[in-house]
């Protein structure tokens, strides 16, 4: 078979520029000829293994001696447990490895041996036989002669694939219009995100940025339970988080229809980036730019959240503001467009 089997060959001996000198003679190692060297290597290997066992014992000691938890054992400013366990276990493993390799290199037989390669492919005879068997199988089953059976089977299996697809339907609800709305609505107070304190425009300095959230996140129902919590809170937060900034009213270039969306230079924008949804929070006070730390999209908040740099395609949505009777900031409606990353049916 080897003749039929095409191997890449470096030219034959006659035409080769330099003839193959053949495998070099085996050179004995010091441990092959010098008994003292051999014994030394033997001792070395055994020492490695012995030290490894010692390290494992030290690992057990470290495990028992160094505390973790409320009062970890601390030295030089760091907890001792992890480095001590790492060092002892690491060395225990490493020494077994080093010892074994030393054993192989110094003491095990180091004669290189040669094996011939055989073609990976089967012989032509085997191939022909296999093809014949396959043909026989096809013939005996009659799969070619009975297209009705074949096609109905293929059809049934194809239809069957719908079952797992259907079964996965309950992975999640359909999006519906969820991506188009947030929890903001007319009259809801804009509060600080740390403790829910309402915000008075007059209390803000020019250039200041406040991370805000809708007041409902901090409200409780009649039983004293939070109105919204857990998973639902996170889902709403992922859409409703805002930032409130104050700038000189003269710097603001409000677009048509947005002239009265601010209060005395205080504007409110979605905190969720229109690129892939990171919360945007790096505020450049002097330029009114807001930079997303994930992919560096930059928005000009004095100019309706326009994209001035980076991969985001759409301006960051603005929340129209007003003040209530007590002088605190409120939203006058939900966002007028979907917040967060783009999606196909967004429009």
């Amino acid at each position: 078979m080897i003749e039929k089997h095409e191997l890449s060959t470096v030219e034959t001996a006659e035409t080769e520029p330099v003839a193959d000198p053949g495998l070099p003679e085996h050179e004995p190692r010091p441990t092959d000829v010098d008994e003292a060297a051999e014994r030394r290597a033997e001792r070395q290997v055994a020492t490695f293994f012995g030290l490894s066992a010692l390290c494992t014992l030290l690992f057990i000691v470290s495990y028992l001696v160094f505390k973790v938890g409320d009062e970890p054992t601390v030295k030089l400013g760091f907890g001792l447990s992890t480095p001590a366990l790492g060092a002892t276990l690491g060395l225990a493993l490493l020494l077994i490895g080093v010892g074994t390799i030393q054993w192989a290199r110094k003491l095990m037989g180091d004669h290189e041996i040669m094996e011939f390669r055989h073609p990976g492919a089967s012989s032509q005879e085997d191939r022909d036989d296999t093809v014949a068997i396959l043909a026989l199988g096809a013939e005996e089953s009659g799969i070619a002669r009975r297209p009705l059976i074949r096609n109905s089977l293929l059809g049934a299996v194809g239809v069957l694939l719908l079952a797992p697809v259907m079964a996965l339907r309950d992975l999640g609800p359909l999006p519906g219009d969820k991506l188009f709305h947030t929890i903001w609505k007319k009259g809801m107070r804009v509060v600080q995100d740390v403790d829910g304190t309402p915000i008075k425009p007059a209390d803000m300095e020019v250039g200041q940025l406040i991370n805000g959230e809708p007041a409902i996140f901090f409200e409780h129902d009649a039983d004293g339970e939070p109105k919204i919590e857990g998973v639902e809170l996170n889902q709403e937060k992922a859409k409703a988080a805002v930032i409130i900034v104050k700038m000189q009213p003269g710097d603001i270039k409000a677009a048509k229809g947005r002239e009265n969306w601010g209060v005395n230079g205080v504007l409110c924008y979605s905190k969720i980036c229109t690129h892939v949804g990171c919360p945007i929070s790096l505020w450049e006070q002097q330029t009114h730019h807001l930079l997303c730390p994930c992919h560096q999209s930059t928005f000009d908040l004095a100019d309706n959240g326009r994209v001035v740099f980076g991969p985001a395609a759409r301006p960051v949505p603005q929340l129209p503001l007003a003040v209530d009777d007590e002088g605190y900031l409120i939203a006058t409606s939900d966002f007028t467009e979907p917040v967060g990353p783009s999606f196909w049916e967004r429009g």
Binding site: A92, L94, I96, G97, G99
Partner: peptide, 20 residues
Amino acid sequence: AKAGGFFFVVFGVLTLMGGF
């Protein structure tokens, strides 16, 4: 022996990294 020993070397080095 070499490959088996090398497993212990890799594991040992990774453990030292994990420790420090």
